[in-house]
């Protein structure tokens, strides 16, 4: 099943009745996400990234504008509830999204909510635990897991619901380098299996792993480009308080100084290797 998400002139305000109408968290956002895309939504703190993620998932209701899934407007509670099955969301703090006192029961939680039959759960749960590398830890209590393992458990809980789209809302920001590496690898793996990945982050290095980057600033979409296009003009990210990955910045500077390097590098290792060869 494919899921095309469309945000049509979406505006969102946390307290539209009580506070100033100028404090919009999201302002007139128009975005379309096709099935199978790997998109990074990047922006500094308070740019509206997490609000946008919650709007896509149906956790927040747009103050103005529409959320359209496969051409259908999502307007009622039932529609938003059904959306949770298609669009899964992994949050920032792994500790605050694990509900049950054991790994197995936590993965089952979402399936129980959807009313999935027990026999089906018995098939799905071992499969997703193996996919995220938590097989053998079924009976473990969450507080005995590492930060990275907790986040993988949260991902397993969402994956068991078999969504087409996965939103990662700064899901790597509280992890150590090893844990972050595992989650980013898992994102790539899920993308290759056909899932849509929407990665919310303020880390430019992570954002450049996606095929498409959307820059948010003060609730507005400032830029929506594919990686290649943004790569050539990455310096503009600083306009919105974002860092340019050091490897990209160095590569661009060396090219500008006439070094004979490839026009695009994939990672730091490739850059080091090219500099080594050039020298």
């Amino acid at each position: 099943m494919a899921t095309e998400i469309s945000l049509e002139n979406v505006w969102f305000h946390y307290y539209p009745q009580t506070e100033s109408r100028e404090k919009w968290a999201i302002q007139g956002v128009d975005l379309i996400f096709q099935q199978g895309e790997y998109v990074s939504i990047i922006g500094s703190n308070g740019s509206g990234k997490s609000s946008l993620a919650c709007l896509i998932n149906g956790l927040f209701i747009p103050t103005n504008g529409n959320l359209v899934i496969n051409g259908q407007h999502i307007e009622d509670d039932q529609g938003r509830w059904e959306l949770k099955q298609r669009i899964g969301m992994v949050f920032q703090n792994p500790d605050n999204q694990i509900v049950a006192p054991s790994v197995l029961d936590d993965v089952a939680f979402g399936l129980e909510n959807l009313g999935v039959a027990r026999e089906e759960m018995q098939k799905r749960i071992p499969h997703v635990l193996e996919l995220v590398g938590l097989s053998g830890l079924e009976k473990k209590e969450p507080h005995h897991l590492s930060g990275g393992q907790k986040q993988r458990l949260a991902i397993a809980g969402v994956l068991a619901m078999q969504p087409d789209v996965l939103i990662f809302d700064e899901s790597t920001s509280m992890l150590d380098p090893d844990g972050r590496h595992h989650i980013l690898q898992l994102m790539r793996k899920l993308h290759l299996s056909g899932k849509t990945i929407i990665h919310i982050t303020h880390q430019a290095t992570e954002a450049f792993l996606a095929d498409r980057l959307v820059v948010l600033n003060k609730g507005k979409v400032m830029l929506d480009q594919n990686r290649e296009a943004l790569y050539a003009n990455s310096a503009q990210l600083t306009n919105w308080g974002l860092d340019v990955p050091i490897s990209i910045e160095l590569h661009q500077n060396l090219l500008a100084k006439g070094w004979n390097l490839s026009h695009r590098i994939e990672n730091e290792e490739q850059l080091v290797s090219e500099i080594w060869t050039y020298m």
Partner: peptide
């Protein structure tokens, strides 16, 4: 936690199954 539960389609005991 409430948001994470809602994101995983929790809406009370109605229609739930048990593992």
């Amino acid at each position: 936690l409430a948001m994470a539960m809602e994101a995983r389609a929790y809406r009370g005991g109605v229609g739930r199954t048990k593992y």
